[in-house]
């Protein structure tokens, strides 16, 4: 009998699907927020014209890519290959991505806990993290978002209500 046997690592189809859907959703929400929210708009304006970033899981994805095309911020799909990205936020594994995308850990906290590898220039990474924080405040109920961001912002009611409505509708309807 052989002393050593080969074992093939299993699969996690449920978590993979969840992470894939939420990355897609987050990508779409960033696109929507860039059109509805002044601060997000300003963050992207300060970035290079061809700026693109991706966020996803090592080693085999899923991924989302968001970038500027002809002045507009767009969700550019789930394939990071074949396109230059100024920044890649590489989550070390699917479980860590699941923690982040079930909002148990914010992007900043996940960075603090060594779960994300930031590949790219720091100013770009910081801008993207600020954008993701704002998007989380839009998408999540206050109770959950408060856990996800360091300082829950004091926005005027208008920004909170209309902003949230706009980001949600644009994300879901995709315009």
């Amino acid at each position: 009998m052989e002393l050593v046997r080969d074992v093939q690592a299993g699969k996690k189809p449920f978590k993979r699907a969840y992470v894939g859907i939420f990355l897609w959703f987050t990508g779409k929400a960033v696109q929507a927020a860039a059109r509805s929210d002044e601060q997000v708009k300003r963050e992207f304006d300060a970035l290079p014209d061809d700026f693109a970033f991706s966020m996803g899981c090592l080693p085999n994805g899923p991924w989302m890519v968001v970038g500027k095309e002809e002045g507009a911020v767009k969700y550019l799909g789930g394939n990071p290959e074949g396109r230059h990205q100024h920044l890649r936020l590489k989550i070390k594994n699917l479980e860590a991505a699941f923690l982040i995308l079930t909002f148990q850990e914010s992007t900043a906290m996940a960075t603090v806990r060594n779960r994300i590898i930031t590949d790219g220039e720091l100013p770009h990474a910081l801008a993207v993290m600020r954008v993701l924080d704002i998007v989380e405040v839009y998408l999540l109920p206050r109770r959950i978002a408060k856990l996800a961001v360091k300082r829950y912002p004091r926005w005027p009611l208008k920004r909170k209500l209309f902003g949230r409505f706009a980001v949600y509708t644009r994300t879901l309807l995709g315009f």
């Binding site: 720091l122 100013p123 910081l126 993290m129 961001v149 300082r151």
Partner: peptide, 13 residues
């Protein structure tokens, strides 16, 4: 200072 990475690890925003 907004472009510096150390801010991520600071307790307060």
């Amino acid at each position: 200072a907004l472009l510096d990475g150390a801010s991520v690890y600071n307790p307060e925003e």
